[in-house]
Simulated scan of single mutants.
Amino acid sequence: MGTILSSTGEHLVGLKQAAGLELGTPVQYPVYTVLFIPAGEGKFHADFGTFPFSGPTMLFSTPFQTLQLASSSPQAPVMLQFHGDFYCIAYHHNEVSCNGLLFNNVYISPMIGLNNEDVRSIELILSQFEEELRQPSPSETVLQAYLQLLLAKSSSIKLRAMADGCGQAGKDEQMERFRELLDENYLTLHKPNDYADLLAMSPNTFTKRCTRYFKKPPSRLIQERLILEAKKQLHLTRRSIKEIAYALNFEDEFYFSRMFKKFTNVSPQAFRDRTGISIVADLTPQ
């Protein structure tokens, strides 16, 4: 449907129908990815989490997240991708609260369900986005405005769904407490048993409840929370790899690099090179 590249050939923003084979096997992109699936059922594999879905729905992923889509939809999903240099979700957080809601959250599902009205709104924005991309000289300002509108609409839908489910009987207060404890202690407590003790639960019960509630075992959540912080510091600061490793309590930068690559398949430096350093890095003290 259309793509804009940077002067160095990097993918800045693009919209296309995702071919089945492209997402049928695990794949990583150095950009943010939004998938619009108008119909069908399937499973969305994001890193080591598996999320069943039923269309219409939208799925969201961050740079270098491992993705795989197993879908029965007869229609290929629409894929919108953008680089952090094209639209910085951290810089625009006040206008669009998608950072930590649609992207960069290890606890909640990376998707939103859509009703008929939502589908019409999303399809309209995507058609306007596509129309601009088809222009002889697409305006990046116009495309950024459409992208911001899409993310704002998606965030609004996600917040509505979360509010509707706030009083569900399925809410597990102890697992919500685990979420709080992990955010407070991810730098120092790295074992599931540490959190099981804080919650006064047996390790076995804690693992079962966490896996049922978050769709991931606690060991995975603990690792993902640490890697999420590493990604943030690589993208949102100009700290050196050594400084980031020290800030995250790693023994040295080499151990940090090995662990980071184990979970992302790229080194910290390669991640920074491909995703870029956000303009936010120059707006906040290091």
Rank of each mutant, 00 (worst) to 15 (best):
S7Y: 11
H11R: 02
Q17S: 14
V31H: 06
V34E: 05
G40S: 07
G42D: 12
A46V: 14
G49N: 02
T50G: 05
T50P: 01
F53C: 11
P56A: 08
M58L: 12
S61L: 02
S61D: 03
T62Y: 08
L67V: 04
L69Y: 06
L80G: 04
Y87W: 15
Y91K: 13
L102V: 01
L102N: 01
I108S: 07
P110C: 06
M111K: 11
L114D: 04
D118H: 12
R120Y: 08
S121V: 06
I122Q: 04
E131A: 13
Y146T: 02
Q148S: 15
L149F: 06
R160M: 05
R160G: 09
D164Q: 15
G170N: 14
K171T: 11
K171A: 10
M175H: 05
L182F: 04
D183N: 15
D194V: 07
A200S: 13
A200L: 11
T205K: 12
P217H: 04
S219I: 03
I222H: 00
L226Y: 00
L226E: 02
L226S: 06
K232W: 11
H235I: 11
S240V: 09
S240D: 12
E243C: 09
E253G: 02
M259G: 02
M259D: 14
Q269F: 13
Q269M: 12
I277Q: 14
S278C: 11
V280R: 10
